[in-house]
Design a protein around this nucleic acid. Sequence first.
DNA 1: CAACGTTACGCTCTTCGTAAAGATG
DNA 2: CATCTTTACGAAGAGCGTAACGTTG
Lengths: 306, 306
Amino acid sequence: MKLHQMRYIREVARQNLNVSTAAEALHTSQPGVSKQIQLLEQELGIQIFQRSGKRLTGITEPGQIVLDMAEQILREAENIKRVGEDFTKVNEGSLSIATTHTQARYRLPPAIKGFVERYPNIRLHIHQGNPSQVTDMVVSGEADIGIATEAIANHPDLVALPCYIWNRCIVAPHGHPILSDKPLTLKKLATYPMVTYDLGFAGSNTVRMVFEKQGVTPNIVLTAIDSDVIKTYVEMGLGVGLLAKMAFDPERDKGLSMLDASNLFPDSTTYLGVRKDAYLRTYMYDFIEFIAPHLNRKAVNIALQA
Amino acid sequence: MKLHQMRYIREVARQNLNVSTAAEALHTSQPGVSKQIQLLEQELGIQIFQRSGKRLTGITEPGQIVLDMAEQILREAENIKRVGEDFTKVNEGSLSIATTHTQARYRLPPAIKGFVERYPNIRLHIHQGNPSQVTDMVVSGEADIGIATEAIANHPDLVALPCYIWNRCIVAPHGHPILSDKPLTLKKLATYPMVTYDLGFAGSNTVRMVFEKQGVTPNIVLTAIDSDVIKTYVEMGLGVGLLAKMAFDPERDKGLSMLDASNLFPDSTTYLGVRKDAYLRTYMYDFIEFIAPHLNRKAVNIALQA
DNA sequence: CAACGTTACGCTCTTCGTAAAGATG
DNA sequence: CATCTTTACGAAGAGCGTAACGTTG
């Protein structure tokens, strides 16, 4: 049994059982991949892939188990490589972050700024997606760290660290009647056409449930995944905006007025998620600490143990 | 990075950093081991072992991390091998059970009997030890399954399955005053010299706490790890015996009388422990079901997932 | 017949074992 | 100086790539 063989079967499975494209992705020859898979199957005494004649048509039952274990082994091998780099190339490497628009646009910039000053030679990738995409990217190892308010806390392979707590605000064009009609209530809010986040984003579930519980039906005329889109349409007069307070910038958003809405909705928590079995490079710990100062290396390790 | 190199560094660490004996244990030449370790260290860019001149004198900090990961990889590789065997050699293999004397002597025999009838070609090993040794053997992979009342439920790498519930009895030579002095109470029990299990065995903690809570101090004149030893000394008149009810056999223990003591002590639960990340061969699932019929394959898998 | 997987074969790089040399306490 | 590790080197073996062959839809 060889580590290479694990890579081969994993790649073939990933490439929809196409050995040729798998070979290409692995930068090697197709017959070599074929051969090694056969050798592995022979050694284990089982078929990993189903074949109809010469085509691979599926994954056998034991094959699936083996593939899962191979995945595990390769992850661990990757971790070992990282240990080496962590101790020799302290200031080199890459950091891949998966997050949602609101976090990327309004919450991460200061942390990123501090991080790139400290580690100018780390290649930084920020992937944007919806919370479940963020979760998937961390689970699959495409991203080292995921940051989102939804989804990320409920995956068995991840550990979720509470990052920060936030609440919402209402934005409207200057002079809009909602601004003077104090105090603000859910009922009043529901009388105006509203623009807010897509389902599955930024605590939208929480918002929905609050309205439901109070027996109030909001008039949502537009949803977006993007705070800036929401603000743009609010500015155009489409309705009032309900968004994360951190997404309102009095400097930039001069065309809008803001009302705190934290009395109407419960606080939401944004989580940072990492794979339980990932080896975190030192700079990753540092990045986490840049985002949430209470999450120092020790605190993260304690969470990872449990 | 090669799987072989993982084996080499693990074995060197196990053999107290002696490369020569490690090579012997691996059935290969000593220079080969040396070389591969150097190659690995070179590839990772770190020292795994500390050296003073040519002697290995310790494990470096990154080395320890790498060793832990290597261990994990090799465990997973072992699991893959088992998958193959499980699907090809259904009726071959070995089953290694670690347990305490009382279980081995009084509880396992019927399960073992059923098992060897079903799987006559599986090599069976029963290791006897105290509960913490049992736990260690399962954790290290020396044993596939551990069975004990103590210790085994509290290890993070193991999953503990409740196996069966039992309670205690009092044994005494025929005609002993305790037998007629009904009803039996803790206070009365404490007036007689007593023979029972060693600390750390068979719920001895529970027993101690029950006495303590009632403010009664038992007069324990002898402890043993072994129910048969306890009974022998009781028969000799050393005192009354407090032991697991399952360990009293009216057929064999004709020289003794038995009093149920389950009203004096809370029930104890015996657990069966397996490594969370172990691949269990089909016959291992079957063995577990022989011991505890409610623990069928499905139930065990559900426990392993969580 | 186009796309794909397997077989065949020669080349290269790795690995392994023996022998010798160097270091340690 | 006995024990242990590293270096050196030749033989055996494993892996890889090209080319040819066989299948499948």
